[in-house]
Design a protein around this nucleic acid. Structure first.
Lengths: 151, 151
DNA sequence: TTAATTGCAAACGGTTTGCATGGGC
DNA sequence: GCCCATGCAAACCGTTTGCAATTAA
């Protein structure tokens, strides 16, 4: 009884489709925010009060490994997680982070130029430093509209 | 008895030039690495065994606030710190991070183009999202020469 | 059936805090 | 001498781990 692409993917890779895993997928599927493990846990409890925080962590770890979820670090002490739409071809975006309220905006505008330059730079850096580059992050930190008014 | 630019800066801002603060400055001055609080503490103990980890943290917090030190987050659970050469005009660089051994390479090559594009993007993003951008980070994650051979 | 996965509780590791003591100006 | 700053110990908080019980296939 698989009711989503991600669930199929899980089974395809030989992992069991357990209650906590279904719940985590459904929660992530229904938000465009970057949720922390705690955020997910709180939402999960409402669906199934017997779920444990540990399973959330273990599920997220697994999902990160198999490229179903991307783990983000925005400079808070906690990590944040985001569903990757398609495990085979993940959509790439960069981030705009409010240092005051921690809001994160994904942007994919203006990306063509950025991606071009990033690729070019990656190639140059790989050669010069003999680094095998796997991924990159671009984060702009600042103040969102609301926080500009408050600060 | 100020023996460095940063120490003068500290006093200028009205902060006391205490033993732990001198030691932290000297340690950071003599490395091109990004040290963690623990790294600094271990080095500091060799200079003055009565120093406490807490002071290292408090010193780094202060230094970060007054732009003497830059705090970095490279996705480990601990933060890393780097002296900013000149508090008035900090030199900008991007990072190349080995996900396996956590080595960090600063690069400033190819930066002209990158900085140009970043500035352009910053302007566009500011307008579109009404964000006041304060700084950005560009991190390339991958494997360094050594770890490519081992992995 | 039976190995994978869970929930609990306890450990962990980096960082922060409260408080009495001590050191710079 | 007066505070600012320190060192210690304990708290904190997100995350991980050991283990016995449970569950999906």
């Amino acid at each position: 009884m698989k009711d989503s692409f991600w669930q199929e993917h899980l089974c395809y890779l030989g992992f069991r489709l357990t209650v906590p895993r279904k719940i985590v997928i459904n929660i992530l599927k229904e938000t465009e925010k970057h949720l922390s493990a705690e955020d997910i846990y709180v939402k999960a409890l409402k669906i199934n009060p017997s779920i444990g925080l540990t399973s959330i962590y273990r599920t997220l770890l697994l999902f990160t490994k198999i490229n179903v979820v991307q783990k983000h670090d925005f400079g808070e002490k906690k990590a944040r997680y985001e569903l990757i739409n398609n495990p085979l071809k993940k959509e790439h975006h960069h981030h705009l982070i409010c240092t005051r309220c921690k809001t994160v905006i994904d942007y994919a505008d203006f990306m063509k130029e950025e991606v071009e330059l990033m690729t070019k730079t990656e190639n140059k850096l790989s050669k010069k430093y003999h680094f095998k580059i796997i991924y990159h992050t671009v984060h702009f930190y600042g103040l969102c509209v609301k926080c500009q008014k408050l600060a």
